Simulated scan of single mutants.
Amino acid sequence: MSFEAVMPIDQAIVAPLLGAAVGLVLALTGAGGGIIAVPLLVFGLALPMQQAGPIGLLAVGLAAGLGALLGLRSGILRYRAAGLIGLCGILAAPVGVWLAHRIPNLPLTLAFALLLAWTGGRRLWRRRSLPRDAAAVVDRPCRLNPAVGRFDWNLRCARVLGATGVLSGLLSGLLGVGGGFVIIPALGRYSDLPPASVIATSLGVMTLVALGGVGAAALAGGIVWQLALPFAAGAMAGLLLGRLLAARLAGERLQQGFAVLCLVVAGLLLGRVVAAVI
């Protein structure tokens, strides 16, 4: 039975459950939703990449948008920073798409797997606690003004955030991911935002970047709505549940969990590359 017909009952049950896993990861880490969404759809529902990509992007965009709104209401989302990163990402994404159409699928998959392995390994084996001495904090280009709770904007900060947006947009277009695994480390390294604010700001960026991709896919008729809607609904429910769990878990533990997730997904992708070569 085609996906354009009535969706089988098992898929109607599995789709929101898989979506909930995506939302849970988004809430706990602010990243990784796009990384696991497509593999879940490919391995869990046996979808081709052409259908899995737009569905995953829709779910990530809606769940991230919900999380961003909650963060904005709580006053922890730095919306100006998110807007700058998101705008640069939207402008850079078409370049990544252009490159993706000119690079064979196998090298792209290998590059994605190696990037994930590097990201996860670097986070997992770094020192558990790096002291934030005064000199290190002062040297960060994006610093909060405690009097107003906002960034003291300067050219160096704008450059760092803009470059982060360009890189995340390129990877989004090239590899079909939301770019959160780029945004989270960048905000953690170049700003003094607390972890909750880093996650909320990352969700805001991912919402903006997803808007363009989902719109283009919808206009081209590339979204299977019978699967996309329950998958997205599950992602939003998972995000709400994840917010409750995040308040009870340590930030360092969450980041270690995200690192393990990156390594697991990298291993799955490398296995697919090896199987294709053999």
Score class of each variant (00 low, 15 high):
residue 4 E to Q: 11
residue 5 A to G: 14
residue 8 P to T: 02
residue 9 I to C: 11
residue 14 V to W: 10
residue 18 L to Q: 02
residue 26 L to C: 09
residue 30 G to M: 01
residue 31 A to T: 09
residue 31 A to N: 07
residue 38 V to D: 04
residue 48 P to W: 08
residue 59 A to W: 02
residue 64 A to E: 02
residue 71 G to K: 07
residue 76 I to H: 10
residue 78 R to P: 04
residue 78 R to G: 02
residue 85 I to E: 02
residue 85 I to R: 08
residue 88 C to S: 11
residue 93 A to T: 15
residue 94 P to M: 11
residue 99 L to S: 12
residue 102 R to N: 15
residue 103 I to F: 14
residue 104 P to V: 05
residue 110 L to R: 02
residue 112 F to D: 03
residue 112 F to H: 00
residue 112 F to R: 02
residue 115 L to S: 04
residue 116 L to M: 15
residue 122 R to V: 11
residue 132 R to M: 14
residue 133 D to G: 01
residue 136 A to V: 12
residue 142 C to W: 05
residue 144 L to V: 15
residue 144 L to W: 12
residue 145 N to H: 11
residue 145 N to I: 11
residue 157 C to M: 08
residue 166 V to F: 10
residue 176 G to R: 06
residue 176 G to M: 08
residue 177 V to T: 06
residue 178 G to A: 10
residue 187 L to D: 02
residue 189 R to Y: 15
residue 195 P to D: 12
residue 198 V to I: 15
residue 202 S to W: 13
residue 202 S to D: 13
residue 204 G to F: 05
residue 211 L to N: 02
residue 212 G to V: 08
residue 214 V to Y: 08
residue 216 A to F: 10
residue 216 A to C: 09
residue 218 A to R: 08
residue 218 A to M: 07
residue 219 L to K: 12
residue 220 A to E: 14
residue 220 A to N: 13
residue 220 A to Y: 09
residue 222 G to Y: 09
residue 224 V to E: 10
residue 225 W to T: 07
residue 230 P to C: 05
residue 230 P to Y: 07
residue 231 F to N: 09
residue 232 A to P: 00
residue 237 A to D: 00
residue 238 G to M: 06
residue 246 A to M: 12
residue 249 L to V: 15
residue 255 Q to F: 07
residue 258 F to N: 06
residue 258 F to T: 04
residue 259 A to G: 04
residue 259 A to V: 00
residue 261 L to Q: 03
residue 265 V to K: 03
residue 266 A to M: 05
residue 268 L to Q: 00
residue 268 L to A: 01
residue 270 L to G: 05
residue 278 I to F: 03
